[in-house]
Design a binder for these strands. Structure first.
Lengths: 398, 398
DNA sequence: TTGGTCCTTGTAAACGCTTACATTCTCGGC
DNA sequence: GCCGAGAATGTAAGCGTTTACAAGGACCAA
């Protein structure tokens, strides 16, 4: 291994001078600079990152912890796992920011079976992995649902940490999330106001999922705000295609008049519903409208293409990264919850005319203040520039 | 920051003892061990990764360098960029291996505009990024086409390095790649032998792409080996949906009898071809058969579902990682090119009956020895276990 | 008791870098 | 030719670990 000493002795200077040349810091005479540069080049010297970190007292590395589906074999890499793309895109957002600042990105996947279930006991495997990780980074970005709140808080006390797409009710931790509530609200209003749908059937997500909760609450608010509108039934699915299909089959089996629209808590379940309806010979959107949520890639491919809500996933990564870097710089900064605006994507499954998708920016709607959480340090709703320039539900062709 | 010294003084021992407890190395009396563990826990001590790396003289980190498409905005995250999933899946393979050995994974994306074009001058941006990276890792995994061969060789001399899916003609560097040749050969044989197609039209990839070259060569060999079979025309596309569509439109515009089949160098172009044919009212596979390559996710969704060749992408990551770890352990090891077997995925676009995809393992076919490269250090073709148990083109239902 | 073994623990020297501070040059003004 | 100010360079003290080696204790046999 080539070290500073090797370069120094080759160039006939001290290691301090080599270091100065390397970073262009102190003043170095031009001819020495040239001599040293030559030595560096000839020896192929590359500074040792570990030694630099130690001496500078910072690692210039930030860690990203993603939740990975468990036991997924390569050939099962199907629509269910498309949600994997969530972290892939988050990662790209993070990486873009990281790079601008000359930092590095350390990635860890946590398997589903490691992360779910009861709050992990102290010293469990996830806890241990996280500890080890934290010795190698300046700060941590953690995806939703990876750690139980108390464990999260514990780690956050020890090191800079930002949660991505977490439970927005949780306080005292930096968090960046998509504005599920406003998205779901806009979607419901589109169905009810624009398309005059009155009788809705709700294919809900799991009760444990915080984003499902936000979407559910928004739907209810819109329904309440529009007299004559009613949720004729709810099926609690598991965010999978199969459960969307099952829920729809059960709805059909129950008989009675069809509802006007099926509101699905995510795209996968909407796709499942589409399958079930097609099998029953029911036409979408003529006989019944369907909407999803998330705008996963296949949403634009199915028949009819799905009206849904797009999440700014990559931006989630960027913002979370910005926040983390800010916190590393100032550990005393107040914690914040930042909600990013979503976007309505109108395709034809809701009854809109076929053709290219139309997109609507969604103006963030201040959430009902959660009764039990008045002490939230700060809430940033939406993002200045984007929110400011968008009037309520403008339609923009792209 | 809590250090070894803090723990040591709290437990009333020396730092050496704390270190021993931490790693369970030397003998430590039970009661001291307990005392030290308690101190560690109470103080929330986490060893500093940089200091450990420095003292141990290894980083326990490996780097993965991926090529990212440039200027891709979030809402353009469409089928063209599905190839991004390539690295996402490679990454998961790598991560799986990394984790088993308690290493960490450092990720860097290189943008297309940084990586393409003429061999980069010394000290260019990519070179600089790579240098910096290499100070932080024990070894590097580099994706195809990121560095010009000579630059690659230069870096490989300086540190352990394995190329993923690179130009298989290049020698002297460790490389793990999918067996494009055997895959393309099997696909062509399926069309010609099993379906009796005789007149093929080839929608080829860019001349600069090494995998396109491998596929092209295999197609030609199969055609030559089957008298009466002919490639009636070739269109050189750019691996995009649009170019597949354009190539097909040009074929149709030329008039004359339709060929029996369209052999596309990747799935994206096959999908473009499908669009063009549908627009012209030509039925697939009744009027013409189509096959793609890569088995990207949407290949199973289009109409008709695409017959194609599946690449073991995740395994690519795993093998490359294994190889890298081996090289780190033994830098003097001979370099190897490892080709992983591909898999034929039979759906209905080739004329096979509709229904669930059938998959065929592909027995690796030794490649024609490239005339100009006899000095290849070693060639491993296929993978022992898989290759051994599969007779020529067995059909396996899954 | 004494000497010799183990077992346990402590001491101190790396590891390769950054950087505060000390030292040596260089050079213009007198 | 000398002085002083700045510029250029060198010296050395960390940074937080690991680990070779030394040293101290406990215990047993003689």
């Amino acid at each position: 291994m080539v070290t500073l000493y090797d370069v120094a002795s080759r160039a006939g200077v001290s290691i301090a001078t080599v270091s100065r040349v390397l970073h262009g810091h102190g003043a170095v005479r031009e001819d020495t600079r040239v001599r040293v540069s030559a030595a560096i080049e000839e020896l192929g010297y590359v500074p040792d990152g570990a030694a630099q970190s130690l001496a500078r007292n910072r690692k210039d590395v930030i860690g990203l912890v993603c939740a990975e589906h468990s036991g997924l074999k390569p050939d099962q890499y199907d629509i269910e796992s498309m949600s994997l793309m969530f972290y892939d895109e988050v990662m790209r957002g993070v990486e873009a920011r990281i790079r601008e600042r000359n930092l590095s990105l350390l990635i860890t996947f946590l398997r589903e079976d490691e992360t779910l279930g009861a709050p992990e006991p102290e010293g469990g495997p996830v806890d241990a992995r996280l500890r080890e990780l934290s010795g190698k980074v300046d700060g941590l970005l953690i995806g939703e649902g990876i750690l139980a709140p108390h464990a999260l808080a514990k780690h956050a006390r020890r090191m800079p940490l930002v949660v991505i797409a977490g439970d927005t009710a949780q306080k005292g931790t930096d968090m960046v999330s998509a504005d599920n509530g406003s998205g779901a609200r806009a979607l419901a209003e589109h169905l009810i106001v624009d398309h005059g749908k009155r009788r809705l059937f709700h294919i809900d997500g799991p009760v444990t999922a915080p984003d499902a909760a936000a979407r559910r609450m928004a739907l209810q608010e819109v329904v309440e705000a529009n007299p004559g509108t009613v949720v004729v039934g709810t099926y609690t699915g598991r965010f999978s295609v199969a459960s969307g299909q099952a829920g729809t089959e059960r709805l059909l089996a129950a008989g009675g008049p069809l509802p006007d629209a099926l509101v699905c808590a995510n795209d996968q379940m909407a796709i499942g519903a589409l399958h079930a309806l097609a099998a029953a010979g029911i036409r979408v959107p003529q006989d019944i409208a369907i909407v999803g949520f998330d705008d996963i890639f296949p949403a634009s491919l199915c028949d009819p293409p799905l009206t849904t809500v797009h999440q700014p996933i990559r931006m989630l990564g960027e913002r979370a990264c910005d926040r983390l870097i800010a916190r590393i710089a100032d550990p005393a900064m107040r914690t914040k919850l930042e909600l990013l605006p979503t976007e309505l994507v109108l395709r034809s499954s809701c009854g809109c005319p076929p053709g290219p998708a139309r997109r609507r920016e969604i103006k963030p709607v201040p959430r009902r203040k959660p009764a039990a959480a008045p002490a939230l340090a700060a809430v940033t709703v939406g993002v200045g520039a984007v929110a400011a320039k968008s009037p309520l539900l403008p339609t923009t062709e792209r």
